[in-house]
């Protein structure tokens, strides 16, 4: 077996490069999933968060060989869902987006949180987003947006 096979946003793909390559860079450069942002390459900022088999992971800290057989979802795939629409609307309504760099990771972190816990408290929301740094908003608008999405999207998660 020489190629690494996995699912990316619902499609079967196979990657012929090195097993040691960084998922973050492969997503951006090979598959043009540029919603996945590179902030730190140290697992500190969450801008590169993706869902791997439904679990939130920093793609900068994943080698390609580790995702053989996995399902990877980035914002390019998640934006096709009804859940995204609800989060998108809530983030917009509450002006939870400023420069936008952290937002793809932030929205996927919200999705991961709500999938596990559809009715989180404010504390639980803050914990769920604690690995995603934002230098613009001061976080409160984002926390409020996730709280609003949980209410508006009742039954979706």
């Amino acid at each position: 077996m020489s190629e690494i096979r996995f699912r990316l946003n619902g499609s079967e793909v196979s990657y012929a490069g090195s097993g040691a390559d960084r998922l973050l860079e492969v997503l951006r450069n090979t598959y043009r999933c540029t919603s996945v942002k590179c902030g730190c390459k140290e697992g500190e900022c969450g801008a590169c968060s993706v869902l791997i088999d439904g679990v939130l992971i920093n793609s900068c800290c994943v080698a390609m060989g580790a995702i053989e057989g996995s399902e990877v979802v980035t914002m390019e795939g998640f934006r096709e869902t009804r859940r995204f629409e609800v989060l998108d609307k809530a983030f917009g309504e509450l002006s939870a987006v400023q420069c936008g760099f952290c937002i793809p990771g932030m929205v996927l972190a919200a999705e991961a949180l709500l999938s596990k816990n559809p009715h989180p408290t404010v504390d639980e929301i803050r914990q769920g987003l604690s690995g995603n740094l934002c230098r613009c908003t001061g976080y409160n608008a984002i926390v409020n947006a996730v709280e609003l999405a949980a209410k508006e999207g009742e039954g979706l998660w």
């Binding site: 697992g43 679990v55 939130l56 992971i57 972190a109 949180l113 690995g131 995603n132």
Partner: peptide, 9 residues
Amino acid sequence: IAAPAIRNA
């Protein structure tokens, strides 16, 4: 330890 995405991995 760290944050959810790191604890997940």
